[in-house]
């Protein structure tokens, strides 16, 4: 039961919780499609505190709360708020506690959401902390995989790109390992998965760490692509020479199974060529759209609306 509980890492979600959320998200999706009015969080208030830019996560949380009949308050711009005057996160959270029923936070420092949860009795949802965790994105990714492929258990999953800093993949690897996935981690050597994360995966035999896509993606059910950020490289030429070997275009798609899907947390830059968008296996826009029903399910469960 996640009622009245904070969601800081994917470990805060039990297998039963996850199943309940995925089922509830399906119901939310049906209600949205049928334009049925859902007023289960009438008069409840969500406070969103985004200390880092975000488009999809912020909009989908706020949309989810509005769709549930609740209201959203937000700190419009960190630069003009009391944070700019040097207020601690702890004090900002104490204020948000008084003004709202649930707090959604994104922060550049790791552990910020955990700290926030210690200064409020209201549930806190981690919407990304530094290169740490982003649990609701993970639930959304799992929902997308289940919806697209029909199951979560025993899949061949390839994660490609920046596996060192990409926060979305860290939570996802931990979650997929619970579902007996065979996971291939393909990245440039300088952007490999951190060792502390590998240590947290129970079945390490299910992980393969690789440098190249060649011959490693033909059996994939899911190819999860992440953005390799230019700013991670001191030499721009190194980025240019490398990006091509970690990019997906139609000829790469030809080597993949007909039943596979391509996912990406977005925004994408050079990793997936626009020509791939027409391929029915390109699931990344459907994945982003799933953010609303999934976050509706999570917020409704946490606030006890369902």
């Amino acid at each position: 039961m996640i009622k009245n509980r904070s969601i800081i890492t994917i470990d805060d979600i039990s297998d039963d919780d996850l199943n309940e959320i995925l089922t509830a998200a399906d119901e939310m999706d049906r209600s949205l499609k049928s334009k049925k009015k859902i007023n289960i969080l009438d008069s409840r208030v969500m406070c969103t505190l985004f200390y880092e830019p975000s488009t999809r996560t912020r909009l989908s949380f706020e949309s989810a709360m509005h769709r549930l009949g609740g209201a959203v308050i937000t700190m419009a711009d960190v630069k003009t708020s009391s944070v700019a005057k040097g207020e601690t996160l702890a004090d900002t959270i104490r204020m948000a506690d008084a003004y709202s029923d649930i707090i959604v936070i994104r922060h550049p420092l790791e552990g910020a959401a955990r700290l926030a949860s210690r200064f409020t009795s209201k549930p806190v949802i981690n919407a990304g902390d530094g290169s740490g965790q982003h649990p609701t994105q993970t639930i959304m990714d799992l929902y997308t995989i289940k919806k697209e492929i029909g199951r979560l258990d025993g899949l061949n999953v390839v994660l490609l790109g920046d596996l060192k800093y990409g926060r979305t993949v860290h939570s996802l690897i931990l979650a997929l390992s619970k579902f007996n996935a065979n996971i291939k981690l393909i990245s440039p050597p300088s952007l490999r998965i951190p060792e502390y994360l590998i240590n947290r995966v129970k079945n390490k035999k299910s992980l393969e760490i690789l440098d190249t896509m060649d011959g490693n993606i033909s059996d994939a059910d899911v190819l999860y692509v992440t953005r390799i950020q230019k700013e991670r490289f001191t030499d721009p030429n190194e980025y240019q020479s490398l990006i091509g070997s970690y990019s997906i275009n139609n000829s790469v798609m030809e080597t993949m199974k007909k039943t596979s899907i391509i996912m990406h947390p977005l925004p994408r830059v050079d990793e997936i060529a626009p020509e791939v968008d027409q391929d029915p296996r390109a699931a990344y826009f459907r994945q982003a759209a799933n953010g609303v029903p999934v976050r509706m399910a999570i917020v409704a469960k946490v606030l006890g609306g369902i």
Partner: peptide, 28 residues
């Protein structure tokens, strides 16, 4: 976050004592 000016102390949970391995309670 425990290294910033927030009003908290660092907290580590010992996972293994010899050799020592401990986990930060904030960044995990």
């Amino acid at each position: 976050i425990s290294n910033s000016k927030e009003p908290v102390q660092s907290v580590f949970r010992v996972i293994n004592s010899n050799p020592l391995i401990a986990k930060c309670d904030y960044c995990e």
